[in-house]
Design a protein around this nucleic acid. Structure first.
Lengths: 245, 245
DNA sequence: CGGATCGTTGACAGGTATCAATGCTGGTGG
DNA sequence: CCACCAGCATTGATACCTGTCAACGATCCG
């Protein structure tokens, strides 16, 4: 993890204004005047797979926007098991709870090499006082988190294991033209869907055998959206007897 | 459902200032000046059990704060089944997505006779422009929704049916000194926990037989927190063989 | 090459869904 | 007032999905 610090606030601002994914990020519609209010340099951070952005309970001094890569938010339960409560990607904001001065609620672990912009909480707050632009974006982020959580809850935690996996793959491939998506490890998949590692493995193995998914690389899969949708609808064709719920 | 409209903005403001649960609601730390910016009257609404506050897809013109009662947010899936994604109570905000100009994402149905304050989106926005106070409260609400959703996800959707029910009852009874809580109908319980109506019924029936819960009224139960916690930990004593996960 | 990690597969038990039938309760109309 | 109905809760029998325990294969890396 090598912070790529830019030591000049003005440069930082200029950088934000030129950001390739600016339309997606928190500062999307700030004006040049707004940027003048950012007093600290914006840090750019790069992380490799498996590294940790922050841990649950850490003091929250910044929020992060995902510029690229994939991150999972992990929550440990009292019995030692863990659940993955969210997966974040380009344009998403990580650690929003920092704005509420609450310790981070999860462990944020990198799934695919990722880069972030680090936004100190103090800057966000100051900026919000001076400019109404940020509020709109923050609202949108919060909204997205919540509606994603709802989707998650309603689709990824009910039905048969096959259906959950199908939902997950389609979720991971959403608005991805190539129909290619990140394929989580089996343990993570279990933690995402509330199923066991073995069940996750069995389902993925079956999907592979039937050609519903094809590996592009160890953690990238091409998916057959139609077939997966059929699974979700409870397609009788998939060897087992009629299943629907 | 009988709107109890107050036709004078000033009165409204005075009312908010005197609100018994003001510390819990969105307008918690507005100043008198702030209230002057509210141009529309605040409606107070009362609903009986089973009534609908709004439907999924409705045009979002207001958000609501819960003054009393209990509300469920229901999401229907393509196959006709439904999931309850959240339960809201005093001090919670319903319909936050309205701030983002998105159609309501759920059906909001009253579980226990409830009263709301109706806050037009236009007012919220105007108020936020003129005063920084509201922002802090909004942040807190969003935060709470998200962290509740996480709890939900990690606790209420994994483990055995017994454990999920135990978690749910403790969740419903949280910070309730009397150890009494709302007891959902079995179908709702199923929709909350991703189990079937029959399984929910079996579990509740067993809990009643063992004295873990006692009915105070058809939809109110006294709960034995200790016993329920033991269930969650995978207590072997509960007739079945060792279960833990 | 050997070890570690991860994915796959098998056998089996047990939890839950499913289908079906029977109590229970509150409200309605005769 | 009581019979009756509709909706909800409960319970049983059975099939099957999934968790559990265990073994084996694949891959990566030192």
């Amino acid at each position: 993890m090598q912070p790529d610090q830019i030591n000049n606030a003005w440069h930082t601002a200029a950088k934000c204004e030129e950001c390739a994914i600016r339309s997606m990020v928190l500062f999307a519609d700030l004006t040049k005047d707004d940027f003048d209010h950012i007093h600290h340099p914006i840090h750019e951070l790069n992380f490799a797979t498996g590294e940790t952005l922050y841990n649950q309970g850490d003091k929250p001094e910044a929020i992060y926007t995902v510029r690229s890569g994939l991150v999972k938010l992990v929550s440990y339960l009292s019995d030692g098991s863990f659940r993955i409560v969210r997966i974040l990607r380009q344009g998403d904001v990580v650690g929003l709870e920092a704005l509420d001065e609450k310790p981070y609620l999860h462990h944020a672990v990198i799934l695919e090499t990722a880069s972030f912009c680090r936004l100190p909480v103090s800057d966000i707050k100051a900026l919000n006082e001076s400019s109404p632009h940020l509020f709109k974006q923050l609202t949108a982020r919060w909204q997205r988190v919540i509606s994603d959580a709802d989707t998650w809850l309603s689709k990824l935690t009910s039905g048969f294991a096959k259906q959950r996996v199908a939902h997950l793959l389609l979720y991971l491939a959403r608005d991805c033209k190539t129909k290619q998506c990140y394929l989580p490890g089996r343990e993570d998949m279990g933690a995402l869907l509330a199923i066991t590692t073995e069940t996750a493995s069995r389902v993925i193995a079956e999907f592979k055998r039937k050609g519903y998914i094809k590996l592009a690389s160890p953690h990238q899969a091409m998916i057959d959206q139609e077939a997966l949708n059929a699974i979700i609808q409870g397609d009788p064709e998939d060897s087992s007897v009629q299943n629907q719920r």
